[in-house]
Amino acid sequence: VVPFFVALYQALKLLGYIDKNIAFSELSVKALKNIKYCAVIISALYVMVIPFVYLLAEKDDAPGLIIIGMIPIFASLVIAVFSAVLQRLLKEAIDIKSENDLTV
């Protein structure tokens, strides 16, 4: 649960930056990077638990248990990819904004 709450805190910080009109800053990029790392950690933790779920599913003869156990893995990977894309776009937008500020 620790990576989840860290990511949740970073998301709240990101929303605070958006509210303060400093969304296009390095602080937002750092918050997105932390969210990405937390999502990858959550996915890795679930991957480590899947063998135990497999043993439990074999014992109880429940094949759907493996698929249900894989849902959090894919969900956190989707969040990691989405935050990585947003991080890259935000970084490029900050670079373009700084170039425009220097031009004017």
Rank of each mutant, 00 (worst) to 15 (best):
residue 90 L to S: 01
residue 75 A to S: 15
residue 70 M to I: 07
residue 5 F to Y: 15
residue 9 Y to A: 10
residue 59 K to V: 10
residue 100 N to L: 11
residue 6 V to T: 14
residue 71 I to Q: 01
residue 101 D to E: 13
residue 85 V to H: 09
residue 51 P to M: 06
residue 28 S to C: 13
residue 89 L to A: 05
residue 64 G to F: 00
residue 48 M to S: 11
residue 22 I to A: 11
residue 51 P to S: 05
residue 51 P to H: 08
residue 25 S to T: 09
residue 68 I to F: 14
residue 34 N to W: 06
residue 84 A to F: 05
residue 26 E to D: 09
residue 60 D to Q: 12
residue 22 I to H: 13
residue 52 F to D: 08
residue 29 V to K: 07
residue 95 D to S: 12
residue 17 Y to W: 10
residue 67 I to R: 13
residue 80 A to K: 06
residue 46 Y to K: 15
residue 63 P to V: 04
residue 3 P to T: 06
residue 76 S to E: 08
residue 66 I to R: 05
residue 83 S to K: 02
residue 55 L to C: 15
residue 52 F to Y: 08
residue 63 P to L: 05
residue 16 G to K: 08
residue 91 K to M: 02
residue 21 N to L: 14
residue 100 N to T: 04
residue 102 L to T: 05
residue 35 I to S: 00
residue 8 L to F: 10
residue 57 A to D: 08
residue 37 Y to W: 08
residue 58 E to F: 04
residue 79 I to S: 11
residue 98 S to I: 03
residue 55 L to N: 15
residue 75 A to H: 10
residue 26 E to Y: 02
residue 64 G to C: 01
residue 92 E to V: 06
residue 19 D to E: 14
residue 14 L to F: 00
residue 18 I to H: 13
residue 46 Y to S: 14
residue 8 L to P: 02
residue 86 L to D: 12
residue 1 V to H: 15
residue 40 V to R: 12
residue 83 S to C: 08
residue 74 F to Q: 07
residue 45 L to E: 09
residue 54 Y to E: 15
residue 50 I to S: 02
residue 77 L to P: 03
residue 56 L to C: 06
residue 36 K to P: 01
residue 1 V to D: 15
residue 60 D to T: 04
residue 57 A to G: 11
residue 80 A to Y: 03
residue 20 K to F: 04
residue 88 R to F: 04
residue 33 K to C: 02
residue 9 Y to Q: 11
residue 94 I to Q: 11
residue 52 F to W: 08
residue 95 D to R: 14
residue 25 S to K: 09
residue 62 A to Q: 13
residue 77 L to Q: 09
residue 81 V to M: 12
residue 5 F to R: 14
residue 1 V to F: 06
residue 70 M to G: 04
residue 99 E to F: 05
residue 76 S to K: 04
residue 75 A to Y: 04
residue 98 S to F: 02
residue 61 D to P: 02
residue 1 V to T: 09
residue 26 E to G: 03
residue 72 P to Q: 03
residue 86 L to S: 13
residue 8 L to W: 10
residue 31 A to M: 10
residue 12 L to M: 14
residue 15 L to D: 13
residue 99 E to L: 11
residue 20 K to E: 13
residue 67 I to P: 04
residue 44 A to H: 09
residue 64 G to N: 01
residue 21 N to T: 05
residue 61 D to W: 05
residue 7 A to T: 00
residue 92 E to L: 13
residue 60 D to C: 05
residue 74 F to P: 04
residue 59 K to L: 14
residue 11 A to P: 00
residue 10 Q to L: 10
residue 24 F to E: 08
residue 91 K to D: 01
residue 75 A to P: 09
residue 20 K to I: 09
residue 82 F to A: 06
residue 98 S to A: 08
residue 65 L to Q: 05
residue 87 Q to L: 06
residue 25 S to Q: 11
residue 100 N to I: 03
residue 19 D to N: 14
residue 59 K to I: 09
residue 69 G to Q: 08
residue 91 K to S: 02
residue 12 L to Q: 14
